[in-house]
Amino acid sequence: MRFTINGSKREADPDIRASLLDVLREEFALTGTKKGCDHGQCGACTVLANGRRINACLTLAVMHQDDDIVTIEGLGSADSLHPMQAAFVRHDGYQCGYCTPGQICSAVGMLDEVAKGWPSHVSDDLSAPMFDDGEISERMSGNLCRCSAYPNIVDAIRDVHAQEQKA
């Protein structure tokens, strides 16, 4: 099968049972994407597939023929951080760091959903959702942080959203 991973065309011949998560980690050594619960409950495996955030643990690799996958390694590098990565550093949005790649990929996908005007469970007006800390918490509820760095994660995401609004 063929797909695009972090901008490069790649080929793989995975076991039919392999999750996208396992193929990213085992075949392409993209170990930034983490295996936490492996059941879609923790969000540590979040990647962007065709621009949408998904749980890489709950999808078969073979179902992603021709898809465009972006992992934490594709968002930025140590020399050139993605704005969301830089904001997590600036706001100390982690302690152990295990959930961080998933948090960052999820936050990037989430802000794109906000930009499209998608409402959330806490939006008073479904057709014109506001953006505040309550919205960030609700929209990020699929990403758990055992260290409970949530206040700083919210700060980082709010900061990046504000930057995008100015741009």
Binding site: G40, T46, R52, N55, P119, H121, L126, G142, N143
Partner: peptide, 21 residues
């Protein structure tokens, strides 16, 4: 506009990542 109960029910379920799939 016409079925807000459906939007609300969908948004009350799962997480952003799961709803995308």
């Amino acid at each position: 506009a016409n079925y807000p109960v459906l939007s609300r029910a969908l948004l009350a379920g799962a997480s952003g990542q799961l709803r995308n799939k």
